[in-house]
Design a protein around this nucleic acid. Structure first.
Length: 339
DNA sequence: CAAACGTGGAC
DNA sequence: TGTCCAAGTTT
């Protein structure tokens, strides 16, 4: 019985909903309180491929700095990118700002409330559109994120590997989504995946869906969902140059496209198998060590060079460590420790 | 559609 | 130390 599934899950959620700063819990929701769609959209973009723990402080910072979508739309690009620094996947920040400007300019500063309209916004894909529609507007949209893929693959014993299984999982997930309390339901199934139906060692003993779970019945829950094997990451190398003049450093804004796009960084060589040194100007550079960092699809080893008080002709700027992507923070820390 | 795109925590 | 993973989207 489909209704029984959603009822059991919502009953569990009423007792076990996780607390998050952007969330209106089931009790408050029952009184008619609704979350701010802007805050929900903000949280959902930040949560893409990112943990709740990592997002919390960034969400608070953004909401304090830009309390409405119109405030964000009016922000400087550089301020938004700097505030996002450290959170990763920087295309999300560029799209966040684009989206805010579209909502401000084309929607009168009011978020659209349908999946169809939300899908047209920059940085809003099928998951985020369904999440905002359901959580912010209580529309009966079905969210399918990594949690839902795992929960549904186990519940319905779907053994096709991801991502091929996505359509099958989506269909099964849609069939369970209730018309009543769809916003709570969306958050409930994701909470279930995050806290009970976890990738390793799922806590089936306390799961509200333990009885109907087909994978559990066969004891194969930990094997699902199946995934295609991943490629091994290559290691790339590079040279990076930190030129200091007092508390000013030589930095550059990276192009919008590509890795760390739109972010501030230190100059250097390309990152490849066998890069050539590429100092930004001639000087008595000192190599102070190397920095290792792993991105989504490769490992990086950077040979860090530094020089102080170089001669004129080059633009230096004050640099705030927190405004830099992590790999550049590491390089800055290495140079700072060397002094 | 496969690949690009970050980071920090868990094991 | 290394691998896997987390509330995906874009090209």
């Amino acid at each position: 019985m489909r209704e029984q599934l959603s009822e059991d899950l919502l009953g569990w959620y009423d007792q076990h909903a996780r607390v998050m700063p952007w969330r209106v819990g089931p009790a408050a929701r029952a009184t008619g309180e609704r979350p701010d769609p802007y805050g929900i959209w903000m949280s959902e973009v930040m949560l893409q491929q990112t943990t709740v723990a990592a997002v919390r402080d960034y969400w608070r910072k953004f909401m304090a700095k830009w309390p409405t979508v119109s405030d964000l739309a009016a922000a400087e690009d550089a301020d938004v990118m700097a505030a996002w620094a450290g959170l990763g996947y920087y295309a999300r920040a560029r799209n966040l700002l684009k989206c805010a400007r579209v909502v401000a300019a084309d929607h009168g500063g009011v978020f659209p409330d349908t999946v169809e309209a939300l899908l047209k916004l920059p940085g809003v894909g099928p998951y985020t559109a369904a999440a905002v529609a359901s959580i912010a507007f209580d529309a009966p949209a079905t969210v399918v994120d990594g949690n839902v893929e795992r929960v549904i693959a186990r519940l319905r014993l779907i053994e096709t590997p991801l991502p091929k299984a996505k359509p099958e999982i989506t269909e099964a997930a849609e069939a369970i989504t209730p018309q009543d309390r769809p916003g709570d339901y969306a958050q409930a199934i994701m909470d279930l995946g995050a806290t009970i139906c976890t990738p390793r060692n799922p806590a089936c003993g306390i799961c509200p869906w333990s009885t109907p779970c087909l994978a559990r019945a066969q004891g194969v829950q930990a094997e699902l969902p199946k995934k295609l094997p991943k490629k091994t990451k290559p290691t790339r190398h590079g040279y990076i140059y930190l030129a200091r003049r007092g508390d000013h450093w030589l930095v550059e804004q990276r192009p919008d496209k590509g890795l760390l796009g739109g972010m501030i960084g230190f100059p250097g060589s390309d990152w490849s198998d066998d890069p050539a040194p590429a100092a930004p100007f001639a000087a008595d550079w000192r190599e102070v060590g190397e920095v290792r960092h792993t991105f989504t699809h490769f490992h990086l080893v950077l040979r860090v060079h530094t020089v102080e008080q170089s001669s004129g002709g080059v633009e230096f700027q004050p640099v705030v460590r927190d405004d830099l992507p992590t790999v550049f923070r590491k390089a800055l820390d290495l140079v700072s420790a060397y002094e």
